[in-house]
Design a protein around this nucleic acid. Structure first.
Length: 430
RNA sequence: GGAGGCGUCGCAUAGUGGCCUAGUGCGCUCGCUUGGAAAGCGAGUAGACCUUAACCGGUCUCGGAGGUUCGAAUCCUCCCGCCUCCGCCA
């Protein structure tokens, strides 16, 4: 949610931002409702003030006088209740409008309509020459008996997978490695809840539309949502709190399973484990002040790149354009890993990381404040970014580290987390 | 899942229908005092919204949402959280 005062005082800036995000919104109408709302608040406050005074007077009166006063105040109360009801109606409409408004893009976000206008900032890492036709990760993994989606379909349905054997170990190697690196960068590792209250999901702004809701798993009996990322569990951790600028930035690294219904992607990426209903991820969440949020975002991107470089996987950094940036985000930068086995062995980039600066957008609805060193309060700035989406990192490793004989080399930095193992091969059957 | 108890200003506590514009203690901030410090004394110590150039002022918030009442921290209902006991359980 944006600050209505900002909108009221900077309507032109606001309109410009909305236009960049390709959001059609009647600003004049919002300001009209806001005006009505403020007048009605004044009216209700005044009526209530009088009502309180009269009630206090009753306490001091007695006998007939008292009875008469009560009768009179009863009449006034009806008027008050009706006016309060009018206010509530206006407030409801006002809030509904406010919830529709997306976060505004930062100035350095490239303007554009959709993902085709995203801007590649840089390509890093050398794409390997294999000397043979690099294969698709899924073919490699099936040959080695490391991914089983057929039995997963039997047990759970489509878009699930069993990740087996040395690949299961590789998952934990990745988690372990990510945790160690992130801790060195001042992150606190966290294993958060993966089921959260409806109230929190609403405040995060992830179930504002039917389309949003269709993407989430919901438990109606408990009125709870499964998280689609640890961010949804880590950000509301500080709901209704006032953080201290002295403790900023607060950096969290959450490991969680992520649940996604993939409602809008029927028929897309149906093979393998690239797009599944359930995967594990190490996610970064940072709480920062308005002064440092931007630098923290750069830092977060740098960490993502550091992790990719440590694994030796070529990637490119992509700045999402205004039209492709999600509602709560003011700026989003993705990392796409090079997957040499895709596109019939010609290779292609696929998204593995995404980091967003949501500025104070999420914090306002979740009521997360920050006490600045000068004593003033502001809404906290919140950022989130991927450290490792495990499934997709496994894919990237399988394709980039495949050998001609069908085995997989293990990236050097991960070997120590797998008991010194260097190669995953079909030799030992489990 | 069953029974009971509790949720008040940063912390601790008082408050069981109008004297609560929520008292007191601690903590914190500022000032006085002091060679300096402690103690002492004095003042201040939430947030949201409305109004204002600002000051002032008004409204709301005693876990949350409703309700009863002219009037609710206080009474009623539901929800959330915590604690104790029992049951179940990794």
């Amino acid at each position: 949610m944006l600050d209505i005062k900002f909108i009221r005082e900077n309507p032109e800036k606001f309109k410009k931002g909305l236009k960049k995000k390709l959001v059609d919104f009647d600003v004049a109408y919002l300001l009209e409702v806001d005006e009505k709302r403020r007048l009605k608040i004044k009216e209700v406050d005044d009526l209530r003030h009088r009502h309180k005074e009269h009630s206090d007077a009753i306490a001091k009166a007695s006998g007939n006088e008292r009875v008469e006063m009560i009768e009179k105040v009863k009449m006034e109360k009806q008027k008050l209740e009706y006016t309060a009801f009018e206010l509530r109606t206006i407030e409801d409409e006002f809030q509904e409008l406010m919830y529709k408004i997306p976060n505004l893009p930062l100035e350095d976000v490239p303007e554009g309509k959709d993902e085709r206008e995203n801007v590649v900032m840089r390509e890093v890492g050398e794409k390997l020459e294999f000397g043979f036709a690099p294969r698709d990760y899924f073919a490699i993994a099936k040959d080695l008996g490391l991914i089983d989606t057929e039995r997963a379909a039997k047990v759970s349905g489509s878009r699930f997978g069993y990740i087996k054997g040395d690949l299961a170990r590789l998952e934990f190697a990745l988690v372990h490695f990510a945790f160690e690196r992130l801790m060195a960068h001042g992150f606190m590792p966290i294993v958060p809840p993966v089921i959260i209250k409806e109230e929190m999901m609403q405040k995060l702004g992830y179930v504002d539309t039917e389309k949003d809701k269709a993407e989430r798993y919901f438990l109606p009996e408990d009125k709870m949502y499964f998280v689609g990322t640890a961010e949804q569990s880590l950000v509301p951790m500080h709901a209704d709190e006032i953080l201290d600028e002295k403790n900023m930035p607060m950096r969290y690294a959450g490991f969680s399973t992520c649940f996604r219904r993939e409602a809008g992607s029927y028929g897309k990426d149906t093979q393998g484990i690239l797009r599944v209903h359930q995967f594990d991820k190490v996610e970064m969440v940072i709480f920062a002040s308005s002064n440092t949020a931007r630098a923290e975002h750069e830092r977060m991107i740098a960490i993502e790149e550091e992790l990719m470089q440590a694994l030796g996987i070529p990637y490119r950094v992509v700045a999402l354009c205004t039209g492709d940036t999600a509602k709560p985000s003011a700026r989003t930068v993705d990392i796409e890993a090079w997957l040499p086995g895709q596109n019939n062995g010609k290779g292609e980039y696929r998204e593995t990381h995404s980091s967003s600066n949501t500025t104070d957008f999420q914090a306002r609805r979740l009521n997360i404040k920050l006490r600045r060193t000068d004593g003033k309060l502001e809404c906290a700035h919140i950022l989130n970014g991927t450290a490792f989406a495990i499934g997709r990192m496994i894919i990237a490793i399988l394709e980039n580290y495949q050998q001609e004989d069908g085995s997989i080399k293990i990236p050097e930095v991960l070997q120590k987390y797998m008991g010194g193992m260097e190669i995953i091969s079909a030799d030992k059957k489990i």
